[in-house]
């Protein structure tokens, strides 16, 4: 679980952090704060689907569901449990 969180957090930092002063934690709002714009969210979805070998339908890949590392991990766990 912690490993998964760190994996997602590291991806978010490497992929989206423009300013090193920005602190990003597991709970930092990503989409609603504008840190990740909804257009750039696609690469995050693709990363998660590839990494965890799951497929998230577009209607469930909402800005709300992707709004923090913790929320993303909850979403991924939901899919992994169904597998």
């Amino acid at each position: 679980m912690e490993e998964m969180k760190d994996m997602v957090l590291n991806y978010v930092i490497n992929e989206y952090q423009e300013d090193e002063d920005d602190e990003i934690t597991y709970d930092t709002p990503l989409i609603s704060s504008g840190f990740v714009d909804s257009f750039s969210m696609v690469s995050l979805k693709v990363f998660i689907e590839k990494k965890f070998n799951i497929s998230i339908p577009d209607e469930e890949a909402t800005p709300e569901a992707f709004d923090s590392v913790n929320k993303i991990v909850d979403l991924v766990n939901g899919y992994l449990e169904k597998k």
Binding site: E15, Y16, E18, D37, F39, S40, V42, S43
Partner: peptide, 24 residues
């Protein structure tokens, strides 16, 4: 680029090609 103008984003949304972004 992540900071392109809104009209470009709208144009890309109308296109069936895949899209990705890079840091500004």
């Amino acid at each position: 680029d992540r900071l392109v103008h809104a009209s470009i984003i709208d144009g890309m949304r109308l296109c069936s090609a895949e899209h990705d972004t890079f840091k500004h």
